[in-house]
């Protein structure tokens, strides 16, 4: 099968039982995406598939022939961080770091959803939501951080979104 992962072509023949997360971690060697629960409950495995955020533990690798997959490693490197990664460092939007790749991928997908005008449970205007702190918190609630860097995560995302606007 063929996957495009972080812009690179990969030919892998996964077991039909292999989740996309396990494909990345165990077969491609990209361990940045984390396994926290393997049940779609924690968000640590969040990656971007064709630009949309997805819990990679909840989707089988064989469903993604030719898909364009972006993991945390594809967003930036330690020496060349993306603006979102740099904002997480600046605002201390993490502690142990285990949920962090998922938080950052999720944040990227989330900002795109807001840009497209997708509403949420807390949106005052369902077709043209404004990115308030409440919106950020609501939309990031699929990503658990047990260290509880939530206020700092909101600070980081707000800063990046503001710079983008």
């Amino acid at each position: 099968m063929h996957f495009t992962i972080n812009g690179q072509s990969h030919e892998v023949e996964p077991d039909i039982r292999t989740s996309l997360l396990d494909l990345l971690r165990e077969h491609v060697g990209l361990t940045g995406s984390k396994k926290g629960c393997d049940h779609g409950q924690c968000g640590a495995c969040t990656v971007l598939i064709n630009g949309r955020r997805v819990n990679s533990c909840l989707t089988l690798a064989v469903m993604h022939q030719d898909d364009d997959i972006t993991t945390i490693e594809g967003l930036g490197t330690p020496d060349n961080l993306s603006p979102m990664q740099a904002a997480f460092v600046k605002h201390d939007g993490y502690q142990c770091g285990y949920c962090t790749p998922g938080q950052i991928c999720s944040a990227m997908g989330m900002l795109d959803e807001v840009k497209k005008g997708w509403g949420s449970h807390v949106s005052k205007d369902l077709t043209n939501p404004e990115l308030t702190d409440e919106e950020i918190s609501e939309r990031m609630s699929g990503n658990i951080c047990r260290c509880s860097a939530y206020p700092n995560i909101v600070d980081a995302i707000r800063e990046v979104a503001g710079a983008d606007a």
Binding site: T31, E73, F88
Partner: peptide, 21 residues
């Protein structure tokens, strides 16, 4: 001060127990 290991963590390059090849 920012965490010195921060860039590794936010880029998925910090290595946890199950991530040694």
């Amino acid at each position: 001060l920012q965490r010195t290991e921060g860039p590794l963590k936010v880029s998925g390059n910090a290595t946890y127990a199950a991530e040694y090849a």
